[in-house]
Write a protein that binds this DNA or RNA. Structure first.
Length: 495
RNA sequence: GCCGCGUUCGUCUAGGGGUUUAGGACGCCGCCCUUUCACGGCGGUAACACGGGUUCAAAUCCCGUACGCGGUACCA
């Protein structure tokens, strides 16, 4: 690859950044950073004023930063190709659109929305299921190709609303090479005369995209497959402008488990968080999401599964991106999250856990929490599990799980009474896991029963649950007073 | 409908003419470890959409069919 690689992530700020968008950003980032001096640009495509959402840009930036993908150029990060918000580049687009008109590759159109609707309706009725404003229909519409020149000038001068449309040739085959799919070709007759400049003076995606990618010297356009069908229009525009088109790569879509593009509605009904913000709020490990997303539609070709963002950067290549859509497997994400959780130290985990604890109305003492973390770490899927499954470290169980209660047998109360007798006089220093375990042994030997006979009821009494971390270290942490109180309560409640 | 793009275990994928009894991972199941639950270790389950070619040989190349997905806006 000659020259410096420059890629862009170009979301439109119409809402929170969704997970598919984050993956597109990731592939762009990996590709850029995998090349020496590669530049990752963030460009905000805010050309649709009706769908603009104020907080969206901030959310996009936050999401990228959270995931560890810092952009080299973008809003607030000038790099000589700004501004990086299309709304701030508005004037340039008009100029380029006019240029195309002058060259005869575009034209003014004065049709109202109403007239367009009527045209489509008419064509539909006469058996055309997908009416287009194309080489044929444009001749019966109101535009600078059909109206006398004086009238066009008059309308323009009088400030009548107009759009500029691309004059797509009648029959031409447009062929280009996609980095992932190889050569693809389209017939121009299937394309319509795309609006380039809207009546509010803003460019459409197609114009802005082509102009900016060229002006920003983007070398590789890496975007979702939903753009593949409009790529030929873009190719046509590059040709008319006399610009060399960037290389293009259309990524397979992320699919919902029930099929179809992973949309907000589908994701939510299938229990999959859709916005990056949701993952941030649910305290997913960013490394886990990144790792998972990288492998959703790409693989390095070996048997490895676990890689950091930096490692992925080294391994990534477009030709290893798969062509088919990839179903979002939430369980695999959880597996990744568990993996990264286990890799982290208590010290690293503490700040997040503290936040979750506070959300649950608990103010954890750090020293205490640091002892709980190693006990819980091997069995949590998400950070919040430290608290939700470890609530008994902070308060007495209010009720006992059904599953746990089943382990309470007729002799449980007697065994627990005996255990209380064993531990009640223990000095503070002796209230320690090893000794506590010895005491359990002593009781079961005296009663001639198995370990579980005491262990199970004890666990239920202390935690209210039928499973959990190592019991005696847990009891050690809880302390003598709490332990004995909980055992007595359990005997009262469960007999 | 039309145009385009796809199709290997349930899911993510490796494999791109002979190396394949099609490999790995998640999930699921079992065993071991642990006198809990997990972690971990070991093992198992399970796939080349279909039909025609080409070839000595096809999951791999070609053509059809089916199915899926995307696009078909003054949205991106």
């Amino acid at each position: 690859m000659e020259g410096t690689v420059r890629v862009r992530f170009a979301p439109s700020p119409t809402g929170l950044l969704h997970i598919g968008g984050l993956r597109t950003a990731l592939y762009n980032y990996l590709f850029a950073k995998g090349h020496p001096g590669g530049v990752f640009v963030l460009r905000i495509e805010d050309t649709d004023q009706s769908r603009y959402v104020e907080e969206a840009e901030e959310d996009i930036v936050n999401s990228l930063v959270w995931a560890g993908m810092n952009f080299d150029e973008g809003p607030g990060k000038p790099g000589g190709f700004g501004p990086y918000r299309q709304s701030e580049r508005k004037d340039m687009y008009e100029q380029y659109a006019e240029q195309l008109v002058e060259q005869g590759h575009a034209y003014y159109a004065f049709d109202t929305t109403d007239e367009l609707d009527k045209m489509r309706e008419r064509l539909k009725k006469s058996g055309n299921p997908s009416p287009k404003y194309d080489a044929i229909t444009r001749m019966s519409m109101k535009n600078s190709l059909t109206l006398p020149q004086e009238e066009v000038e008059r309308r323009l001068e009088e400030g009548e609303e107009y759009v500029i449309r691309l004059k797509v040739p009648r029959r031409e085959t447009i062929r280009f090479e996609d980095e992932i799919r190889g050569f693809v070709s389209f017939e121009s007759k299937g394309l319509d005369d795309q609006v380039l400049l809207k009546s509010d003076g803003m460019p459409t995606y197609h114009l802005a995209n082509v102009v900016d990618d060229h002006l920003m010297e983007i070398t590789h356009v890496i975007r979702g497959e939903e753009w593949l069908s409009s790529a030929p229009k873009h190719i046509l525009m590059y040709e008319y402008f006399g610009w060399e088109p960037p290389k293009m790569a259309h990524l397979p879509l992320i699919m919902s488990p029930s099929g179809g593009k992973l949309s907000k509605r589908k994701a939510e009904s299938e229990g999959i968080p859709i916005n990056t913000k949701d993952y941030i709020e649910q305290k997913f490990e960013p490394e886990a999401l990144v790792n998972f997303l990288a492998y959703l539609g790409w693989s390095p070709g070996d048997d490895s599964e676990i890689h950091s963002l930096d490692e992925l950067t080294e391994m990534f290549s477009l030709d290893r991106v798969s062509k088919g859509g990839a179903v979002f497997d939430y369980k695999k994400l959880i597996w990744y999250n568990e993996h990264y959780l286990r890799e982290k130290s208590a010290e690293e985990l503490f700040p997040k856990i503290r936040t979750v604890a506070e959300e649950h109305g608990i103010k954890p003492d750090k020293g205490y929490m640091m002892k709980i973390i190693p006990l819980m770490k091997e069995r949590v899927s998400k950070v919040e599990d430290f608290i939700t499954q470890g609530m008994f470290f902070f308060e007495d169980p209010e009720e006992y799980e059904d599953r746990a209660v089943k382990k309470w047998k007729d002799d449980s109360a007697d065994l627990l009474e005996a255990y209380i007798d064993e531990i009640k006089d223990l000095e503070v220093d002796d209230f320690e896991a090893g000794i506590l375990k010895d005491k359990i042994k002593k009781v079961i030997e005296a009663h001639d029963v198995g370990f579980g006979k005491l262990m199970m009821p004890l666990r239920v009494a202390v935690s209210g649950m039928g499973y959990g971390p190592d019991l005696t270290p847990t009891i050690e942490l809880l302390g003598k007073k709490t332990t004995i109180r909980r055992i007595k309560t359990a005997i009262d409640k469960l007999g």
